[in-house]
Amino acid sequence: MIRAIWDNLKGLYSLLVGMKITLIFLFSPQKTVHYPRKTVERENLITYRGPLELTRGKTDPAVTRCISCQMCVKACPGHCLTVVKNPEKSVKAPIEWKYDFTLCCLCGACVETCPTSALAFSHRIYLVARTREELIFDLLADLKARVEETPVLPGEEGASAEAAQG
């Protein structure tokens, strides 16, 4: 009987301990990152691997390094890549590079198998689309637009650095 009372008093004390913990948290700063006002810090953002993009060419940044070897298309588990070869055999660069992000699982098989490192992950974490069609990217046009926007990358290597801002 006395033991039961003692146990219950100890139980009440444990409840007070819990209430103290929540009271401390009530007055301690919040952890939330308010998205439109604040964003995740950059060093955390650039480790995110978002939708694919074509890397800049070595000589002319607006020309892709892709040689239409179709290795990525074969490796892709989701069949989300379409690379159309140039009908003229002499030109290796593709005429069309379609990427269906709705099917992509971001596994990286294409990036790892590419013999010329023409593919890379972007860091577009805040990607938004209203329709399904908006998520089917034309990567050649995307590359051209990026090069026009920033012809020379500010110090950083890899075409993906700038996409983190945009």
Partner: peptide
């Protein structure tokens, strides 16, 4: 709001 602050989030905002 109290629930939010206890759980370290802003609550209605």
């Amino acid at each position: 709001k109290a629930a939010g602050f206890i759980q370290r989030r802003p609550g209605p905002y």
